[in-house]
């Protein structure tokens, strides 16, 4: 197996070599996308379960397309309408899945640590598609892939991650990935959304987007969950947008060549102005395309498929 571990649970677990291998493999798969028949027979006869216990459209769809382009059979299981909704424990769900001889499980779960828990319960590879606030490693890998492809080497690049760091698995995975690739990370947001002691990860913290705007190479905007207002972590979405939203005026202050990223789905008018989202500096669509290639690479590497043609 090219990756040393059975599963892909977190960026923390990966070495820089692992990351490079995934990104190189993704690059070879992306060539498939331009073909008329966008499919390789690599995982023919293999079954992948997409176990999504928290609502998700883009990540689930991305994994489904990735699996299908590798010719695997992909089965979607969601929280609603499944045995889980009837109160089945994750342990029993895991044993049921294992008893059906599936070859890999992609899990999205609302509780941090659940992907690791599932991986301990079953033999087939488990891919973390987001566990609580903990990690979303495939998102970080597709982000790295996008950055490398569009901008080049990350070493020394300055990345501002803006928004709700505290409740973001995307941020945690991205920080780990950027640290491994030696980019310089600044976290930007109101103090209520910056978790305790996160500076110990070797990142800078700023409570002002305006202060960092002119020094960065990449602005990575996080989706703001609207419930942060009802939890009194924010006074209003309006004030959030005024202080931390990437408006057109702020966008105009960015250096040449700065790129904008967002994991989606976007709240236009809150963390990102529509003009900014649709402008050429934005890599948001490229991120989505990269997602399929990177997930194909991960499925291929973990499931030990045949050689890429």
């Amino acid at each position: 197996m090219p990756l040393r571990s059975k599963d892909l649970l977190s960026i923390e677990d990966l070495t820089l070599e692992n990351i490079d291998l995934i990104l190189e493999t993704a690059s070879s798969f992306e060539e498939v996308f331009d073909r008329e028949i966008k499919k390789v027979p690599t995982l023919r006869g293999r079954t992948i379960i997409n176990l999504f216990l928290e609502p998700s459209t883009r990540t689930r769809t991305s994994f489904e397309i990735a699996g299908k382009r590798l010719s695997a059979d992909v089965v979607n299981v969601s929280g609603q309408g499944s045995a889980v909704a009837k109160g089945e424990s994750l342990k029993d769900t895991a044993q049921t899945i294992e008893a059906m001889s599936v070859d890999a499980v992609v899990i999205r779960h609302w509780s941090s640590g659940s992907a690791k828990y599932l991986a301990e319960l079953i033999k087939p590879p488990v891919i973390n598609a987001g566990d609580g606030w903990h990690e979303h490693p495939t998102q970080a890998l597709l982000d790295l892939y996008t950055i490398k492809k569009e901008i080049g080497k990350l070493t020394g690049k300055r990345v501002a991650i803006v928004g709700d760091i505290a409740h973001s698995r995307v941020a945690r995975s991205l920080i780990a990935a950027l640290n491994k690739t030696k980019a310089k990370v600044t976290l930007v947001g109101p103090a209520t959304l910056i978790p305790m002691d996160i500076d110990k990860l070797g990142v800078d913290i700023s409570y002002s987007l305006d202060d960092v705007l002119e020094d960065v190479d990449i602005v990575y905007l996080l989706r703001l969950q609207k419930e942060r207002q009802s939890e009194n972590l924010l006074p209003s979405l309006r004030e959030y947008s005024r202080l931390f939203g990437l408006s057109k005026a702020r966008w105009q202050r960015l250096k040449n060549g700065v790129r904008i990223m967002h994991p989606g789905p976007m709240n236009r008018g809150i963390e990102i102005d529509s003009f900014v989202a649709d402008n050429e500096k934005a890599l948001i669509r490229e991120q989505v395309t990269s997602g399929v290639a990177v997930r194909m690479a991960i499925l291929y590497l973990l499931m030990g498929g045949a050689q890429v043609e």
């Binding site: 566990d131 609580g132 990690e135 698995r169 978790p195 996160i198």
Partner: peptide, 13 residues
């Protein structure tokens, strides 16, 4: 406990 470990583990402190 709220602190560095709750932060990296993504668990509410």
């Amino acid at each position: 406990n709220e602190g560095y470990y709750s932060t990296i583990l993504g668990l509410k402190g």
